[in-house]
Computed example of a mutant assay.
Amino acid sequence: MSGNTDATVRLIAWVQGDVQGVGFRWWTRSRALELGLVGQARNLSDGRVAVTAEGDRETCERLLEQLRGGRTPGRVTSVSEQWTAPSGAFSGFVEA
């Protein structure tokens, strides 16, 4: 078993592009639930969607790959990310 790949982490991803009003948060929630992650996807006032996901690092990286993968609703132009310790505040994955 390698280092901290199994450790629980929090991924915060800010998704920019045409991602509001196109089903992006619903799509993200579906992908996250398929992966067994908890968290939320919420619209920001500047037009981005903030995705917060908690789970093991490898699974969170898989979600991040899907956010960047070109098969999302709308049009993603960039995704920035931040990794932190999990809060444990989520029990499911919601569209906020």
Rank of each mutant, 00 (worst) to 15 (best):
V19L: 04
I12N: 10
R57W: 08
G47K: 09
Q66N: 04
T84N: 02
Q82L: 07
G88E: 06
A41L: 09
R29K: 14
Q82V: 01
Q82D: 12
T52R: 07
L11Y: 04
P86S: 06
G69D: 08
R75I: 00
N4E: 12
T77L: 05
T72G: 03
G39I: 03
R48A: 09
T52W: 02
L63V: 04
T28V: 15
A32T: 07
Q82H: 12
M1E: 05
L63Y: 12
D6S: 13
G17A: 10
F24D: 08
V38Y: 06
A85Q: 14
E34M: 10
E58G: 08
S45C: 01
G3W: 08
M1T: 13
G92Q: 13
W14A: 03
A50L: 15
M1R: 14
Q66T: 08
E34I: 07
S87D: 02
F24Q: 07
V15H: 01
G88Y: 04
T77Q: 12
I12V: 15
L44S: 04
P86D: 09
V19S: 02
T8V: 12
E95C: 13
V22E: 04
D46G: 01
L33C: 09
D46Y: 06
Q20S: 06
D18F: 10
G36K: 10
W26E: 09
W27N: 07
C60P: 03
G69T: 12
V49S: 00
T28S: 06
E65Q: 15
V49C: 03
T77N: 09
Q40M: 14
A7P: 00
G17P: 03
Q40C: 14
E65M: 10
R68H: 06
V15A: 01
R71S: 14
S80F: 04
W27H: 08
R31S: 10
R68F: 10
R31G: 03
R71A: 13
T72V: 09
R48S: 14
R57S: 05
R48H: 11
L67C: 05
V79L: 05
S87A: 06
L35H: 05
D46M: 07
G70Q: 10
C60E: 12
L35V: 02
S45I: 09
G92H: 13
W14S: 05
D18L: 14
V38W: 03
E95S: 13
T28H: 09
V79S: 00
E58D: 10
L44M: 12
F93W: 05
R25A: 11
W14Y: 11
W26S: 05
A53K: 04
T52D: 02
G92W: 10
G55A: 08
R25N: 12
L63H: 09
A89G: 11
G55K: 09
D18H: 13
T28Q: 07
W14F: 04
V49Q: 03
G3I: 00
N4I: 00
T52G: 00
R10F: 02
G74T: 05
G3T: 11
E95F: 02
F90V: 11
G92A: 15
T5H: 15
D6A: 13
G74N: 05
G92F: 06
T59V: 15
G21C: 07
E61N: 10
V49I: 05
D6K: 06
A7T: 08
E58R: 15
R68S: 11
